[in-house]
Amino acid sequence: MNRILIIAPNWIGDAVMSQPLLATLKTIYPHCQIDVLASPWVAPIYRACAEVSQVIEAKLEHKQLQWGLRKLLAKQVEANQYQACFVLPNSLKSALIPWLANIPVRIGYRGEMRFGLINTALDNPSKINRPPMADHYLALSNALEHLQETNASKPASPKLNVSPVAKQSVSTKLEEACINQKSIYVLCPGAEYGATKRWPTEHFANLADQLISNEPDAHVILLGSKGDHALAVSIQAQTQKSTQIHNWCGNTSLDEAIALIGMSKVLISNDSGLMHIGAALKVSQVAIFGSSDPHHTPPLSDKAKVIWLNLPCSPCHKRECPLGHLKCLKDISPETILRNIQALY
């Protein structure tokens, strides 16, 4: 096997969870070139994967067919003469490009009536007995292992590398903001999925104040996308230590966010893509879960502490609390998170 293409998922956390698959493929085929077709949103994750030779960025929009663009991309892909392609999303659209590009072996899970587009298909696990996402993607490697009668040891958890360019860029920003690089706490208040994954802003504000009260030289950086900027503004407005609490939401590239998380003393986040990045960088972290299931999407790191109340109503996997109280998150106190942070030292 000389060249393999990966069709990337569209969520940052899922992209991180796919890295063990890449590492396993590289173990099976150490001389193989692994390329990834990804949206600009998740492309930085794959640039941080040591196994990836080339990231092909494609501005494919969610819920849009974009037939003309897919045909153009298929021509580009076909010229690279890949022997196999792993299609990680379950959608029909995601399977079109490798099919149009005539890649001989197209591997993925069955889904969305894509019979023929995927010619080496695995059954999707039931929603009741879903494995962790890293294992879900990793299982796809069995298709090639069986075809090649090859057996390989599998990595235990995702691993990302920090770009030296991004690290230098972040270091410059920290110096300009007079932030002590030796004691940075990164708080990630956002979660793209919705409110049922977001710990309340007043709790984040309380925690930020306590961290700085306990460690006067510390700085707290609020990190996230442009969509999280308002959450960070709300947190700053509720704090008493605002001069040491910095809103970087929407002001960093994903490459820089990876670098900043790698430099942090502790990462505190909701169940989000940035949580998985922290786990893949092996930084100390506390991950707060509400409506989602930490058995399915845990931070895969021995330096991670998961906080989940496991209420009778959770995990509900709803975007809005169906009972209207959001106790799964509101009842997790800042003091609980602080104790768990201190236990990581």
Rank of each mutant, 00 (worst) to 15 (best):
D255M: 04
K241W: 08
A195M: 13
S284R: 15
M275R: 03
N270I: 09
E215V: 14
Q236A: 11
L211C: 11
C188G: 06
V286I: 14
V266P: 01
Q168L: 13
N270G: 07
Y185C: 06
I288E: 03
I212Q: 09
T201M: 15
D271N: 07
D217L: 09
H229K: 11
A205F: 02
A280F: 05
G290I: 00
I235L: 14
A232W: 00
F204R: 03
Q240A: 11
N247V: 09
A257L: 06
D255Y: 03
F289G: 04
K265E: 14
G190I: 04
N214R: 15
H203N: 15
Q285W: 07
S269P: 09
N214V: 05
A280T: 07
Q238N: 10
D271V: 00
Y185Q: 15
N270Q: 05
K303Y: 09
D255E: 14
L174Q: 10
P216M: 07
A218T: 08
Y185V: 03
H295R: 15
N310S: 12
K173Q: 13
A279M: 06
K173T: 01
Q244L: 07
Y193W: 13
D293L: 04
S292T: 14
L207Y: 06
P216Q: 10
D271A: 06
V266F: 10
M263T: 02
A279L: 08
D271W: 03
N247L: 08
Q236C: 15
K226R: 12
R198I: 09
